[in-house]
Design a protein around this nucleic acid. Structure first.
Length: 116
DNA sequence: TATAGGGCTTAGG
DNA sequence: GCCTAAGCCCTAT
């Protein structure tokens, strides 16, 4: 069953879930693909999230740049338009990048489920 | 409709 | 830090 041309993304709840999670990421914080995937209920669909972000339109208004690898590294190459964009935006939010890596210990966004 | 290949990843040795 | 194996969906033919 092919996707209907009448809708864009909100058709699939999975995609919508990722968008919602992504929109929940606070300013100055970052999350990993697997984290977003898990939060969206996708589980191990980390790569799928990455692929989804790659297809995200510029007018999505979503902080896709706040999504990085679990290791804190930026998968996007510095030579890539999105790569520079991500680094630029992260730095613009006050997120320091060292050797192409972000300090997940400080900027790693974690849900306050443990009351702290 | 079915088949084949790939991706902005993650975890273990 | 590098290599290998695994899980999920999409895209092209």
């Amino acid at each position: 069953m092919p996707p209907e041309p009448t809708s864009n993304d909100t058709q699939d709840p999975r995609r919508s879930a990722v968008y919602l999670v992504l929109a929940q990421v606070p300013h100055g914080h970052v999350v990993s693909y697997g984290q977003v995937a898990a939060m969206a209920g996708l589980g191990r669909a980390a790569r799928w999230v990455g692929r989804l972000l790659a297809r995200l339109p510029d007018d999505s208004g979503l902080p896709w740049h706040r999504v990085i690898a679990a290791s804190g590294r930026l998968s996007l190459p510095e030579g890539s338009a999105s790569g520079q964009e991500q680094r630029a935006r992260l730095r613009a939010e006050g997120i320091g990048i060292h050797n192409g890596k972000v300090d997940m210990r400080r900027h790693g966004w974690h849900l306050p489920e443990h009351s702290g």
